[in-house]
Design a protein around this nucleic acid. Structure first.
Length: 854
RNA sequence: GGCCGCGUGGUGAAAUCGGUAGACACAGCAGACUUAAAAUCUGCUUCGCGGUAGCGCGAGUGCCGGUUCGAGUCCGGCCGCGGCCA
């Protein structure tokens, strides 16, 4: 018998789908839509296993929903701007555009070989002027709406990439891409006013039940809404007040000092006249801006000599320090320190010998003896030593303190967020140019819409570090659109997160030219019904997209404020790691398994097996999807991806696993094609009667239809795989003897193909064809199950004595309780365990269990 | 340190509403076919004890306790792993 050859079948069916235009869709208002989207890839040049998993999951959903009658939008594009293209230009002298478009061509071919049900007519690349032109238009609309602004600000400067990074792109004080330690610099930057939506972005999370709770929590924390108060302290000898922010106005009576951020304006003013303070600030700067580093660093302060007056106690005078643990970006950049109830303040107070007065008493403690040692008391309790607040709890104390501050004009209740506005200026070439012209007399002037796009110049010089656009005089110099005078373009480009903040909306009408987005198309397709991608984008990309969507709504492009109705985050793919005797990492194809299970290199040196880790170039434990698809075909790769591990969990790629999937693909082909010649003609009428075997097979078939459908709806692909294994096993052991048997066998074979189609689409088409069916299986609706066949008429009931299984009964479904009880008590094993005594109690759970209490 | 998630055979896992723990697969073992190997097919495979065997008994879902006729599932405490935040 011939083997299934994916090298022949897969291109054949891909061509057939392509020729029939199966996946090219348009808005059809009378049909329900379903928009499936996987996070679009960065065109690095090759797909990796993470992509295979991501796009396989999405494709199963897309194909399943399509069979279920939905008008499915499943597009693909390229997140094509970004630094690697420039690195390639610097290292290899290839133009970023050439490099990027070449990579896109290569990866498109790889993705196509997976047999994905993608509407390729909608393909877009963010680096193409036909895309970024619209992005520039959107930028100007955000600008007009006051949602984009320019300000001087401290930035995280990546000295290796020579660019600015957003706070969230700084990880452990280092650039997220380069890994280089970050420096602080002050630059003029463009910002998206994401904080205009802080409350809304946080509040809307509550209703987003299609998102994992984990991601919603991460976003909520990122936004970091906290309620507190601004408190004004009178500065002695100066005609000004120091404003501090606190989340604990209830602890004001425990204040023993005030502290300024090294970047507070007052610090700068004092430092101008004080070299020692200047040195201290410089030392703080070396810490970087990472909150974690700052938190871990030893608390240090510098007494400015300034003194302030306590707002409630005119006689209480507090010292003002500049400290290394207060962030200028958060709150007002100044705090009051209450050592007894804040750990950082306590560490600081102990170091500098400041007063520690407890003002919150833990429940059950005696105020006369309660003392704070090395650990601040941060929980709820009763306020003491606090005049009019005494006796209140923390929440009441906050309210009362704020009320008094407001009455005295010494403060105000306020809400603070951790979220900052989104700085998007990047000093790079390969990004979307910011469509603004700087004129000496008119200031920052938007590029007129008619002049868009502001296209990137082709001629660029990458021989020096820094931004080639800033050195490109021919491109930079323009006439001011306002006054006509000599002016220069903004030479920064946008953070690539801007590109990915609206691509999903552009997919709705990617060729629409009049405007960035077609409101009618968005109205039909948006929101994305199912978004699928990695957890690493849980905060930034998803939060920026949610912000952008609110802008798009405001500009009338969208009626929806949320882009993604449901989100699924897939797990990572791991692989064993290997090292040679020198400790160097080895790739899986450099390692051989000996007959006794030991590992060695091809030249016979011993190999140390390391633990399973996420596939990465540095550990060399990657497996190339092209090789896998070349050797086994796309269906085998897809099948293994979906088997065994639930898709949200990390999975391990193994040789044995892919071999097992390959064997299944072959087995399924063998069984179905082996049975095909003996089957009744396709579409033969239902026989009048079935034998017991055929009836049992039909039951299993219809149960599988019900279960696999349910599994797909709930992302239980591993369970769907298990059901199809079961069905295949049943089919393999089935011997058809009469016409009814053969009819049931055809039904089983066809069902197997149809249920498997979303996961192994090429093989399913091949089987459908070999079973004598015309047309494409891809165009077939999802099979319906007969509810009469999914309910067994007899059930197995477990009989327990004192909760322990003693017997099993095969009884008619829904048999009356008395009969079930009798049957259970009549069991020999039950009688043995009852030891002749009457049962004390018998619990009968219909169709499931009988528990006899002895 | 805080918050969240997860702990089930040799391995990945399943158990949908508190009701037969281990479906399905991988790996392993035994057998059939074959000159042989591969492939394929059949069977076994949670652990312990007893029995020639069918089978019986006991234990068992990280640990300790609780609720319940009945707990992998619910509750409390602990331990371990992972993630996020600090």
């Amino acid at each position: 018998m011939s083997r299934y050859d994916p090298k022949v079948s897969e291109p054949k069916w891909q061509a057939a789908w392509n020729g029939a235009g199966c996946f090219e869709v348009r808005a059809e208002l009378d049909r329900p839509k379903y928009y499936v989207l996987e996070m679009f890839p960065y065109p690095s040049g090759r797909i990796h296993m993470g992509h295979v998993r991501n796009y396989t999951i999405g494709d199963v959903i897309a194909r399943y929903k399509r069979a279920r009658g939905f008008n499915v939008l499943h597009p693909m594009g390229w997140d094509a701007f970004g630094l690697p293209a420039e690195n390639a230009a610097m290292e290899r002298g290839v133009h970023p555009a050439t490099w990027t478009y070449g990579n896109i061509d290569a990866m498109r071919e790889q993705l196509k070989s997976m047999g994905l049900s993608i509407d390729w007519s909608r393909e877009l690349a963010t680096c193409h002027p036909s895309y970024y032109r619209h992005q520039q238009r959107l930028f100007l609309q955000f600008l007009e709406a006051g949602l984009v602004y320019r300000k001087e600000s401290w930035v995280n400067w990546d000295p290796v990439d020579q660019t600015v990074l957003a706070n969230e792109q700084v990880i452990d004080g280092c650039g997220w891409r380069s890994g280089a330690p970050i420096e602080r610099r002050k630059l003029s930057q463009w910002f998206f006013r994401i904080t205009a939506f802080s409350d809304e972005l946080a509040d809307a999370l509550d209703g987003m039940d299609g998102w994992p709770e984990k991601v919603r929590l991460m976003q909520r924390k990122w936004i970091g809404r906290s309620e507190g108060a601004r408190v004004f302290f009178e500065v002695l000898g100066r005609d000004e007040r120091l404003e501090v922010f606190t989340t604990r106005p209830d602890t004001l009576f425990g204040a023993s000092f005030c502290a300024l951020s090294p970047h507070h304006p007052l610090t700068a003013e004092l430092a101008a006249a004080n070299p020692a303070l200047r040195d201290f600030v410089a030392e703080c700067d070396r810490l970087g801006t990472s909150e974690e580093t700052i938190e871990r660093a030893e608390k240090q302060g510098f007494d400015t000599g300034l003194r302030v007056r306590h707002p409630f106690l005119p006689d209480r005078i507090l010292p003002v320090y500049v400290v290394n643990f207060v962030l200028y970006e958060y709150g007002s950049g100044a705090i009051f320190g209450c050592p007894a109830h804040d750990q950082r303040d306590l560490d600081f107070a102990r170091k500098y010998g400041l007063d520690v007065t407890p003002v919150v008493l833990p429940t059950g403690q005696d105020p006369a003896t309660f003392e704070v040692g090395d650990t601040a008391f941060v929980e709820d309790g009763t306020l003491i030593n606090s005049a009019f607040l005494d006796g209140l709890d923390v929440a009441e104390g906050k309210r009362a303190s704020i009320a008094r501050l407001e009455a005295l004009g010494a403060g105000k209740g306020t809400v603070q967020y951790r979220l900052h506005d989104w700085g998007v200026s990047r000093q790079r070439y390969w990004g979307c140019p910011i469509p603004v012209i700087h004129c000496p007399s008119c200031g920052a002037v938007p590029v007129p819409v008619a002049d868009l796009p502001v296209a990137l110049p082709d001629e660029v010089d990458f021989s020096q570090p820094g931004n080639p656009l800033a050195r490109h005089e021919g491109w930079k110099s323009v006439a001011c659109p306002g006054c006509g005078g000599a002016a220069t373009r903004d030479t920064d480009t946008m953070d690539t997160f801007v590109d990915s903040s609206w691509y999903f909306a552009r997919f709705c009408a990617p060729q629409f030219e009049e405007a960035p987005l077609d409101p009618a198309a968005l109205d039909y397709w948006m929101p994305v019904d199912q978004y699928i991608g990695g957890i690493e984008h849980a905060i930034l990309h998803l939060l920026y997209s949610r912000f952008f969507m609110r802008g798009l709504k405001q500009f009338g492009y969208s009626r929806e404020a949320e882009p993604f109705a449901a989100l699924f985050t897939q797990g990572m793919i791991g692989h064993e790691t290997y090292r040679d005797p020198d400790g160097k990492w080895l790739s899986p194809d450099e390692v051989e398994k000996d007959s006794d299970g030991g590992l060695s290199t091809r030249d016979g040196r011993p190999v140390t097996l390391g633990r399973v880790e996420k596939m990465s170039k540095s550990k060399r434990n990657t497996v190339d999807p092209t090789t896998i698809i070349g050797n086994y075909g796309a269906d085998t790769a897809r099948w293994f991806m979906l088997s065994d591990s639930p898709p949200d969990r990390d999975m391990e790629w193994t040789e044995a696993g892919i071999e097992g999937a390959w064997r299944f693909v072959q087995r399924l082909f063998r069984i179905v094609t082996g049975a095909a010649p003996s089957l009744p003609a396709a579409g033969s009428p239902l026989p009048a009667a079935f034998g017991a075997e055929a009836f049992a097979l039909r039951r299993q078939v219809h149960k599988a239809i019900e279960q696999v459908g349910r599994d797909f709806e709930s992302f239980g692909f591993n369970k769907a795989v298990a059901r199809l294994y079961e069905l295949t096993n049943a089919l393999a052991g089935f011997r058809a003897a009469d016409e009814g048997d053969r009819w049931a066998l055809r039904e089983a074979c066809e069902t197997l193909a149809r249920l498997g189609a979303p996961m192994i689409p090429h093989l399913a088409e091949e089987l459908w064809h070999r079973l004598g069916r015309d047309g494409l299986l891809t165009d077939q609706p999802w099979p319906a199950f007969d509810p009469a066949l999914t309910r067994d008429e007899s059930v197995t009931i477990a009989v327990q004595v004192n909760g322990k299984l003693r017997a099993k009964l095969d009884l008619a479904r829904d048999l009356d309780e008395t009969s079930v009880r009798e049957a259970a008590l009549a069991e020999e094993a039950v009688r043995r365990h009852l030891d002749g005594k009457p049962p004390r109690k018998v619990i009968v759970v219909p169709n499931r269990v009988v528990n006899i209490v002895a």
